[in-house]
Amino acid sequence: MNVLNLLIAMPGVLTQGLIWGIAAIGIYITYRILDFADLTVDGSLCTGGAVCIMMLFSGYNVVISMLAATFAGMLTGLATGIFHTFMGIPPILSGILTQLALYSVNLEIMGKANQVINVDKYNLLVSLRYTKGVSIYKNSIFVMAVAIILLVVILYWFFGTELGCALRATGCNDGMARAQGINTNFSKVLGLMISNGLVGLSGALLSQYQGFADINMARGAIVIGLAAVIIGEAVFGRWFHNFGLKLIGIACGSVLYFIVLQTVTWMGVDPNWLKFFSAMIVAIFLAIPYWKDKYFTKPTIKEGGKNHA
């Protein structure tokens, strides 16, 4: 085991972590803010990648291509939102339906299961090739760090607006939200669209970074995103109370996740088992608050109790 090999891989790992950080922030919006476990992302990440690559092939520049990928992601969120709010399908199932449908859609977009893009022929924003030996402004780590900061600033602003506050209230207590005149169905659809838009953007960046879009690239995206959210909250939650910092913490959580993954692989664990371990880690972390509640909380007496006349 040569530590140097691990270190050499780090710039790439860092970039990858930051790219997934955008998806993780998207997942945070549905999972934490909207209280909606959205499985659409296991399809929409690929949709973003596919749209971006095919747009680049068609001669559009990278910014337009990424905007289109974001928009495509938003449409997938819209689909899930309609399944849930208009058709009354439970959240998880709504996401699964969209995810399955997207498998066909993504194949249709790409025309085949895998599309490779040549970094030398196209002007990409990020690439594994741009992680070392290029000027700082072209360096993918720098580009991604700036992108995340920009994104956090925009989201910080948005969740402070009337619309953003309505979305937060919907996720926190939808009965209260409706009593205050908030159209909670609209909030949910909007939240799903923003979230999947970000996931689509993340997919667009990921396909550039790795040089291809693949029909399976989104498999397990929800678990990776949740892992990033959970790690981010566990490690940085103590200090990061401000909403903007929380989002930064999640992006950092994503980076940590990929560092751990890389380290485990470097230690000789069969890469085949990585998804298994990711799932187990997320399962355990999700169980912790439940266990805490169940086994470690003293029974509390409700205030006053019911007072009969």
Binding site: T161, E162, L163, G164, C165, A166, A177, G181
Partner: peptide, 14 residues
Amino acid sequence: LAKRRGYGRTLRAG
């Protein structure tokens, strides 16, 4: 949130 009951919610400050 309550202050905005009955009014449209836009991108103005919350």
